[in-house]
């Protein structure tokens, strides 16, 4: 039976730590602290959490800047650079390397990531 945490359904065999880290902008450091805060041991599975803890986790996550909030911050930062007309903003808009790398070859990462509406 899947368990809902912060709007996402997780299988009950999934590790709580992994489930938390599946949210954007929530990494190992934060997940370890959340686990400690609710006294969940690092190897706990979702299925073993009491319902009270599940709702507490959802409440905790809703106070944090994760997922779309965190993406919005990132996009705003790029957009600000772009609106100011900086070199970095322009390079983002063009999908080219931002930090002075040469562009003769090997700019796949820049092509993939450098966009004004970056996904994450």
């Amino acid at each position: 039976m899947p368990v809902n945490i912060f709007g996402a359904a997780f299988h009950e065999q999934k590790l709580v730590k992994k489930a938390l880290e599946s949210f954007y902008a929530l990494g190992p450091q934060t997940s370890a602290r959340i686990l400690a805060k609710y006294c969940i041991h690092p190897r706990a599975k979702i299925g073993t959490l009491p319902p009270k803890t599940v709702t507490a986790l959802t409440a905790e996550l809703s106070t944090m800047t994760i997922e779309s909030d965190a993406r919005k911050i990132l996009q705003d930062n790029i957009k600000r650079l772009r609106d100011m007309g900086t070199y970095r903003g322009r390079r983002h808009a063009m999908g080219l390397p931002v930090r002075g790398q040469r562009t003769r070859n090997q700019i796949e990462t820049a092509r993939k990531l450098n966009k004004v509406e970056r996904r994450g």
Partner: peptide
């Protein structure tokens, strides 16, 4: 080794688990 559930025991000082 943190592989079994734990919980603080209420009304203990220092806190025991």
């Amino acid at each position: 080794t943190a592989c079994t559930e734990y919980a603080p025991i209420p009304n203990t000082d220092p806190v025991q688990y």
